[in-house]
């Protein structure tokens, strides 16, 4: 009975947060397949942690932390690859299945393209704040930074994007 309780809790967590974690990953790694992999591994890690009988205070923040650590690992791996090759693949496939029309696809692509221009730290903070809708406090907690640092990063990220937008005009 206890076992099924943990399984139930885990399935519930998956149903509730799978999309959010996946979205976060997509905007962080700009690759749908990689984002899927990271989402899956995040939930496997979550289950392993739960099944060891450890306490989880905030499941949502915990999941974001796992995903974030996995993404950081992914970036470290990427560094060993050729950065130039990564640039060449900029026009990635976001998967048409979930994109209902060209407009949404366009919006999505634009958002991803914008985020890709940002340094990793800024991107992390911005995605968490405005795409995942986490509070500054939560972001600070799960990235082990102070709230002030996170606020500054978000601000600078937006500033930078504004400047970029000025340099590269967008179609309204």
């Amino acid at each position: 009975m206890k076992i099924s309780v943990i399984e139930q809790e885990f399935t519930k967590a998956y149903d509730q947060f799978a999309d959010a974690i996946f979205r976060h990953c997509v905007f962080r790694v700009s690759d749908r397949e990689k984002a899927k992999d990271i989402t899956q591994v995040s939930f496997v890690r979550l289950y392993d942690y739960m099944s060891q009988g450890k306490e989880i205070e905030n499941l949502r923040a915990f999941l974001y932390r796992i995903a974030n650590n996995l993404i950081i690992d992914e970036y470290r791996k990427k560094k060993t690859d050729s950065l130039d090759r990564m640039r060449d693949e900029e026009g990635f496939d976001i998967g048409t299945e979930s994109m209902k029309d060209i407009e949404t696809k366009d919006e999505h692509g634009r958002a991803v393209a914008l985020l890709e221009c940002l340094p990793e730290k800024y991107r992390e903070a911005l995605v968490m704040r405005h795409i995942d809708g986490l509070s500054v406090k939560d972001i600070a907690h799960l990235t082990h930074e102070t709230e002030n640092v996170i606020s500054v990063r978000i601000h600078r990220a937006i500033e930078k994007l504004q400047r970029l937008n000025v340099q590269t005009p967008q179609h309204g």
Partner: peptide, 29 residues
């Protein structure tokens, strides 16, 4: 900028088949 980001993220989610496939893998685990 923020609006742009939010709009871009609005429809970003796992497809139904992707979600159930992943769920199966996890339940197997």
């Amino acid at each position: 900028i923020i609006k742009q980001l939010k709009n871009g993220a609005k429809h970003t989610r796992l497809s139904f088949s992707e979600k159930s496939e992943m769920k199966n893998v996890l339940l197997q685990h």
